[in-house]
Amino acid sequence: MIVKPGFVAKEIGGQEVIIAVGKAAEKFNGYITLNGSGKLLWEALSKGATKEELISLMLATYDVERDIASRDVDAFLNKLILADVIDEEDSDMPAEEEDE
């Protein structure tokens, strides 16, 4: 998962939000609100974390079962994919072998 250029998180009015700036703002108008876990996931995602690493981060930070952590990460990522904030390319997936 790769965060597209021009998306930043910022605390505004006591709430953490993802905003589009520069060219990204031409297509994305508005903001996405982040809660505590969303903020944690966004910070990791911005640094290039994979989906598996995000799940591990949730497990290390919160007292949750793996399937709940996985579901929450999926919901978070789906929201960002639908808003066109991240690219779906997942470094967890093994690279396909090319035929010679």
Partner: peptide, 24 residues
């Protein structure tokens, strides 16, 4: 309790460009 958008128009140039700056 907030409004975040990218305003259009040149009336606030040079501080805000036409659809160039996201405002809060």
């Amino acid at each position: 309790k907030k409004l975040i958008f990218t305003p259009g128009g040149k009336s606030m140039v040079p501080m805000l460009g036409d659809r160039k700056n996201t405002v809060v």
